[in-house]
Every structure is written in C-alpha cells, then in structure tokens.
C-alpha cells in the first residue's frame, strides 16, 4: 500500500516551527556577526610581523578548522563549565562555539582577501600620508571585502546548516522543533520535508540578496559577478 502523505499535523504545529526557525536565525546571525569581527582580529594578528600575535591566532585557527564542530560544541557546553566554572546556556554555548569556528574560517578569508589587494594600493595610500591603519580601513579592506563576499556567503550557508547540531544540547532550533513535532504526530517524513523546505527557502533568499549586494558593489567595475 502506498504511503499516505498528510501534512495537516505539521501545519497544526507551525508555531513551533516558526519559533525554531527564529532560534536558528538567532544563533546563525549572532555567530556570523561575532565571527566576522573576531575573524578580522585573527586575520590581522596572523598577518602581524610579531610572533606573539601571529602564533596564537594561527593556533586557534588551526584547532577550530581541524576538529569536528560537534566536539567543539560539547566542549564549550559541558567541559568549559567544569574547568572554568562558567554557567553555560545552550544558546550561549552555541554562539560561542560557532562564533570562534566561523572566525577561524573568516580569518583565512580575510587574510587571503587582504593579501590579494596589490601592494601598490598600500603604496598609494601611504604616499598621501595615511597610517597603516587608515590604509587598511579606507583602501585595502573595502576592496578585499568585495572579493570575499562569495566565500562569506558559502560560509553563512554552511553555518546555518551546522547550527542544527545545537539540537544535541537541547537548544530549540528548527530541527529540534521538527524532531519534537515528528515524535508528537508520528509524521516524521512530512515534518522533516517541511523543515528542509524552510531551510531551502531561507538560504536561497539570502543567496539572492547577496548576489544583489555584489552587483551593487560592482559599480566601480571591479566585480566578482560576471
């Protein structure tokens, strides 16, 4: 007998799904924002000529790039409170983990972006009396960031999907909500299909917005979109 698809129990719980989506976006957004700032910091440390700055940054970047995200999440949620006595909520543990993890990734993107800007741009900036900081902020970063947008987007999408791991520490994200609904309604196929559709719609919408942004930034004729 063919399976009878029935989505009504899923839609009856749409409020739960909406709350889950909101929580997913919360973790993703906060981690991206913190990750970007922290990532730029790591990148600058890594590019620094002082080993005291470049080595620790390099170490953190390597550790977070090479260990499984699930282990990192468990470590921050279970181990850090034991070692440091810090109270960790699932949300906080998730944001800390994914911020640093994104930062490790963004640091490499920032670094590659910064070194991809020709030496001549630094020369041009310094020749009119800019400090290195001014040259970085006004001349080099604006050009570097434009080239980094595709990599950022790729990472943002990857991150949104990785955040589903937070369900393992009982944070009520979209997948956690879906799981709950599935168990309640005995309709796992329908529930997870809807959840997947929501991820698909949200991520596609964000990708389209990013393309628009890239086009807007391409006005000066130096573009990543062809």
């Amino acid at each position: 007998m063919a399976y009878q698809w029935d989505f009504t129990p899923v839609f009856a719980n749409s409020e739960l799904l909406a709350q889950g989506l909101l929580n997913t976006l919360k973790v993703t957004g906060a981690s991206l924002a913190c990750g970007l700032v922290l990532g730029l910091g790591f990148a600058l440390m890594r590019l620094s000529r002082h080993r005291l700055a470049s080595w620790p940054a390099g170490f953190v970047i390597e550790v977070f790039r090479t260990t499984p995200p699930l282990v990192q999440l468990f470590w921050f949620f279970f181990a850090l409170p034991l070692i440091a006595g810090i109270e960790m909520t699932p949300l906080l543990a998730a944001i800390v983990t994914f911020s640093i993890q994104s930062a490790a990734f963004f640091a490499e993107v920032f670094r590659a972006g910064i070194v991809s800007v020709e030496r001549g741009q630094w020369d041009g900036a310094r020749a009119i009396g800019m400090t290195n900081g001014q040259a970085l902020r006004r001349i080099v970063l604006p050009q570097a960031i434009k080239r980094m947008i595709p990599a950022f987007m790729e990472r943002a999408i990857e991150l949104m999907k990785t955040t589903t791991l937070v369900a393992t520490i009982a944070y009520a994200d979209l997948l956690f909500a879906a799981n709950e609904i599935a168990q309640k309604t005995f309709r796992p196929l329908e529930t997870f299909t809807v959840a997947a559709l929501i991820y698909f719609v949200v991520i596609t919408a964000i990708s389209l917005l990013a393309r628009q942004l890239e086009r807007r930034l391409a006005v000066s004729g130096e573009s990543t979109v062809h």
Binding site: A125, A127, I128, G129, I139, Q143, K146, S220
Partner: peptide
C-alpha cells in the same frame, strides 16, 4: 616613527608608474 613618516609623506608627493589609484573611488 610612523607619525613622523606620515607627516613627511604629506610633504613629499609621489606619483607611481602603475598609478595606484583607488579603484573603489
């Protein structure tokens, strides 16, 4: 010192072979 050098560079202008214009401006 950087502060000194930035002052000196304002008083000594430089024009490069490759122009080095800022492409985003």
């Amino acid at each position: 010192r950087e502060a000194e050098l930035t002052l000196v560079r304002q008083r000594i202008g430089m024009v490069f072979q490759q122009f080095n214009l800022f492409p985003h401006m």
